[in-house]
Nucleic acid binder design. Structure first.
Length: 640
RNA sequence: GCCUUCUUAGCUUAGCUGGUAGAGCAACUCAUUCGUAAUGAGUAGGUCGUAAGUUCGAAUCUUAUAGAAGGCACCA
């Protein structure tokens, strides 16, 4: 066999495994290897190289290595469970982005978190034995026979082609698997079983619910410890915890999914709203507000009554049926249709901070990330066909501008036409999808494609942000709508005096204030930039008797200058009051004593630093104004 | 909605196999007036999410119910 190595050297081998090739290069390299890649496909280290091509050894440091290890660890888990719970039936156990899981049917036996330690110990035992993990290619019939008592595997096997079926065996344990795996169980040394959850077989809620065990494996002890530490750290910046500690919002059992804004949280939200209105004024949007309750007929016309009724709250007024809006679009369309439009008026951008209510499943609720009432930063753009491309490019730039103010990373997903149940012509779909893709390319934005995941009424771009646990939440969206303009007979008058149907775009940038606030609370770990901080300045008199009066004057002065200022005049030592201000993550703490009173200066300490800086009052105001104007970050968000 | 777990003072939490609850922080009082991450002493505060049951006796066991957490499904 002729193999081309990564460094472009060519070698010729005869009947050699990856391990032997690695050993022929160097002994230490062969110890580091766990698999190899040939022409882009991964193979077990001990399998014989069977064709010419590009050859690459996968070491513990290769990007592919983590996945292989975690997948092998899933097998190790199954092996341990097989010996502890012989009746358990294994469904699927893949590696995932951050670890692995295995879905198991325990046949009515309930597994508890405390059982995980026992399983982990068994896994360690098997790991110590360092048994080989051996692949065997078998026929479909053979596989069906071997796994006959496991309906899950049988279902999987019956969907596979004859050539692609193989098993992996370690000791007494065999599992259906395509591989590859690490060569032996001894490679899996550092791992942790993390949690137990329910999960439906094949992800379908009609199917039986299996027990899912999540875990994480790594090649080094350090990496495993780091992984655990990161999770611990993430818990500290959970927005639900910070929301309570910083007095931002609350949830009550009297209104599950209906958040209450506390003074600090509403102050934070107001800052973002003000900024949002400014940006939209500057970008040619017309801002409106539409009613929260609208009649059933409207929702019948829009189609929401048929498609979305189960998620809508309804009410009666004078015996007439009404619904609380789950979306702002119909209201916005009524505004559009309330007057005649010329082609010269387009694009018409109607924006609204719209309060919507949706009945979300109780199990879906999650802090501010998933709620039953929220305010979308919505806009509906009515434009001509020839304006669409330009409009979307404009939008992408606006999204980027707004996210970058917070230093947020985001990813874009393009969802395309569903297989069935869609409306509109295929050509229009194709063209719209191309326009969305081209707009991303034109602005230099990477995007993934999610085929068939578009709404029935049009393709869309979704903007996804991550929370502190690495979970991904959709925030922004740009959706083309080929449905509503028709249903509501929206038109404009073109150059020739004809009525023409406009193109309608739905868009939300932050998505909802609730979810977005949740994201930035975690992103900043509660240490908000000065422009957002609910309280920007805390004034501490050194001595209440001598300095409190001066502090009150100073507070008045700063309040008049537009800053958000509080005084801590409690009878506590300065150190204690300073600590309190730091815990509340207040950007600036001013200490006012004799020196400051005499010379009209302030001594400030910025959050996250322990420097004391003394400046004239006016200079402090200038500095702060500049920081607010620039929307500067208080501290490096990664470090919190 | 489904699976598992959890629910003790404002907050964080102890309470093993059932014998009517312990603490830290916060609050309040008093003393201390002390210039950059916790001054000291004391007071008050809970019947253990809610409802029913088992028991001589339940925070602790059973059932129902509400809410929450981690997932799954859902997010048109």
């Amino acid at each position: 066999m002729k193999l081309k190595l990564l460094d472009c050297k060519e070698i010729v081998v005869e009947n050699k495994s990856g391990k032997e090739i690695a050993a022929s290069i160097s002994e230490s390299l062969s110890k580091e290897c766990i698999a190899y890649k040939l022409n882009g496909k991964l193979y077990d280290l001990y399998s014989i190289v069977s064709e010419d091509g590009d050859f690459e050894l996968i070491t513990k440091k290769s990007p592919e290595a983590k996945n292989i290890l975690n997948h092998s660890c899933a097998h190790l888990l199954a092996d341990a469970i097989k010996s502890l719970y012989p009746d358990a039936l294994f469904a699927i156990g893949p590696a995932i982005e951050d670890g692995f899981y295995y879905d198991i049917d325990f046949n009515g036996k309930i597994l508890r978190e405390e059982d995980l330690a026992k399983i982990e110990n068994k896994m360690k035992e098997i790991s110590k034995k360092n048994t080989y993990i051996i692949k065997k290619v078998i026929s479909k019939d053979e596989a069906l026979r071997q796994f006959a008592n496991n309906p899950y595997k049988v279902e999987i096997i019956s969907e596979l082609d004859d050539q692609e079926i193989s098993t992996y065996t370690q000791g007494d344990f065999s599992d259906l698997c395509i591989g590859p795996h690490v060569p032996s169980t001894g490679y899996i040394k550092f791992f942790k079983l993390e949690s137990i959850a329910g999960a439906y077989w094949r992800g379908d809620s009609k199917n039986k619910q299996l027990t899912r065990i999540y875990g994480f494996a790594s090649f080094t002890k350090e990496e495993l410890e780091h992984h655990i530490a990161v999770k611990e750290e993430a818990k500290k910046r959970d927005h639900r915890k910070l929301g309570k500690e910083l007095g931002l919002f609350m949830l009550s059992e009297y209104g599950p999914g209906f958040p209450f804004y506390l003074p600090n949280g509403l102050m934070l939200r107001r800052q973002i709203e003000n900024w949002w209105y400014q940006i939209h004024d500057m970008n040619g949007y017309k801002i409106i507000k539409t009613p929260v309750i609208l009649s059933k007929e409207l929702w019948l016309t829009s189609g929401h009554w048929d498609h979305y009724k189960d998620n809508m709250y309804t009410t009666k007024i004078d015996d007439r049926e009404f619904a609380i809006k789950p979306m702002n679009c119909p209201g916005s369309i009524l505004v559009y249709n309330s007057e005649l439009h010329s082609y010269r008026d387009l694009p018409l951008r109607l924006a609204e901070l719209g309060l919507v209510h949706r009945h979300e499943a109780s199990g879906a609720l999650n802090g501010l990330f998933r709620v039953r009432c929220f305010t979308q930063d919505d806009a509906h753009i009515f434009c001509r066909r020839d304006q669409l491309q330009d409009e979307i490019v404009k939008l992408l730039k606006l999204y980027d501008e707004m996210y970058s103010v917070f230093g947020l990373d985001y990813s874009i997903v393009l969802s395309t036409r569903p297989e069935e149940g869609y409306i509109g012509d295929i050509e229009i779909w194709n063209e719209s999808e191309k326009i969305l893709a081209d707009a991303c390319k034109a602005t230099g934005k990477d995007f993934k494609i999610n085929p068939g995941d578009g709404a029935f009424y049009g393709p869309k771009l979704d903007f996804k942000l991550k929370d502190c646990m690495g979970r991904i939440w959709q925030c922004g969206t740009i959706q083309l709508d080929m449905n509503l303009p028709t249903r509501f007979d929206c038109t404009y008058i073109d150059q020739n005096g004809n009525k023409v149907r406009p193109i309608m775009l739905h868009r939300a940038i932050l998505g909802s204030f609730e979810r977005f606030l949740g994201i930035i609370i975690e992103h900043f770990g509660g240490a908000f930039p000065t422009w957002l901080a609910p309280v920007q300045i805390k004034i501490l008199p050194v001595n209440n008797e001598q300095h409190l009066e001066k502090c009150k004057l100073l507070q008045q002065d700063l309040l008049k200058a537009g800053f958000r200022v509080e005084i801590d005049s409690s009878e506590e030592k300065l150190g204690y009051r300073l600590r309190t201000a730091q815990i509340k993550k207040i950007p600036y703490t001013l200490v006012i004593g004799d020196k400051e009173c005499e010379f009209n200066t302030v001594t400030y300490r910025k959050f996250g630093t322990n420097e004391q800086i003394n400046v004239p009052l006016e200079e402090f105001k200038t500095l702060l104004n500049k920081e607010i104007e620039d929307k500067k970050f208080l501290v490096d968000t990664k470090k919190i």
